[in-house]
């Protein structure tokens, strides 16, 4: 055998032919999404999120005896216009329900694979550790989008069903058409998606630290709560602009005419920073990790 046998390719049938160049990884990304959305758990979480605006709408419809003076301001306005139900649902879900589901998906990303022992088989396939991290992160981001869209759409649909629908009066006092208000609902869902990108990166990093997915999920959710608590304490005011949850509820600026984009930009920039920092940490940890699970 010659010394150049490493490149030797015996005659092989079409069935056994190998590609000479590596694919970009779209196939694996599609496979990752398929695995994510074939899990009953994912659908259970999306259904639970869809239930949030539905419960609000039904509760308000049953007991619509005017303003109670409590709860978020949006709640009262949904009796006047059903299109607000989606926004009200997002407002309620952002502090806890959305972080909970995002924590489950991102915390499970690597630790879950380690737990089912599929991680070592993916790595010897070989998937490439960086590619795996990127695909896992992108899938978590897709879930964020699916989660916020589910909430918004479920809210709008139940709103249309239970309440009068008409042109929407914005916070700035202007009135916009139904079509325009639907676009703004979509923008708010996008804002909430962007808001969750930082938390997803944190979850991904925590997920590389352990083989126990439940631990990684819990830690991610706890961090999201800690950040919101710190954000509400005046003693830690210096820290507030750096907390990933700081701009979570600032989407009201999207309900002005003209749209005030600055909070969207600030939020996106902050989340991007978290993605880079925790993405780098996850890479640093995962690229040299011994896979012993």
């Amino acid at each position: 055998m010659s010394s150049s046998d490493s490149g030797a390719t015996p005659v092989r049938s079409g069935l056994t032919e190998r590609r000479n160049r590596r694919s970009v990884g779209l196939g694996f990304f599609a496979s990752e999404l398929a695995v994510l959305f074939r899990r009953r758990r994912t659908w259970a979480m999306l259904l639970a999120l869809a239930a949030v605006p539905i419960l609000i709408a039904v509760a308000v419809r049953i007991s619509s005896s005017g303003s109670s003076g409590r709860g978020p301001a949006f709640i009262d306005s949904i009796t006047q216009n059903g299109l607000f139900v989606g926004v009200a649902g997002l407002t309620i879900a952002i502090p806890l329900f959305l972080p909970l589901t995002v924590g489950v998906v991102s915390g499970d990303s690597i630790a879950g694979e380690a737990n089912t022992a599929t991680l070592r088989y993916l790595l010897v396939s070989p998937v490439g550790r960086i590619r795996l991290l990127v695909v896992k992160y992108l899938a978590a981001a897709v879930f964020c989008l699916a989660a916020t869209l589910t909430l918004s759409i479920a809210g709008i649909l139940i709103g249309i069903a239970l309440f009068p629908v008409g042109p929407v009066t914005l916070l700035s006092g202007d009135t916009v058409s139904i079509g325009d208000s639907l676009v703004r609902s979509l923008l708010i869902a996008l804002y909430a998606t962007v808001s969750l990108l930082g938390l997803s990166a944190i979850g991904l990093f925590i997920s590389t630290l352990t083989d126990a997915p439940v631990g990684a999920m819990a830690a991610t959710v706890v961090l999201s709560i800690v950040a919101q608590v710190l954000d509400s304490l005046s003693q830690t005011e210096w820290l507030h602009p750096w907390l990933f949850s700081h701009y979570w509820l600032n989407f009201a600026d999207l309900l002005r005419q003209p749209i005030e984009w600055s909070s969207f930009g600030q939020n996106a920039l902050l989340q991007l920073g978290y993605v880079f920092v925790f993405g780098a940490l996850a890479y640093g940890r995962f690229s040299s990790k011994d896979i012993l699970s």
Binding site: G27, R38, T116, R120, Y121, S125
Partner: peptide
């Protein structure tokens, strides 16, 4: 072995094969 319990045997193999960037689809 290590597999996703909620996927079928053949779906599991499809998944692992898609992880290999050199494997022709």
């Amino acid at each position: 072995p290590g597999f996703y319990p909620f996927l079928s045997g053949s779906a599991n193999l499809h998944r692992l094969d898609s992880a290999d960037g050199f494997a022709p689809r």
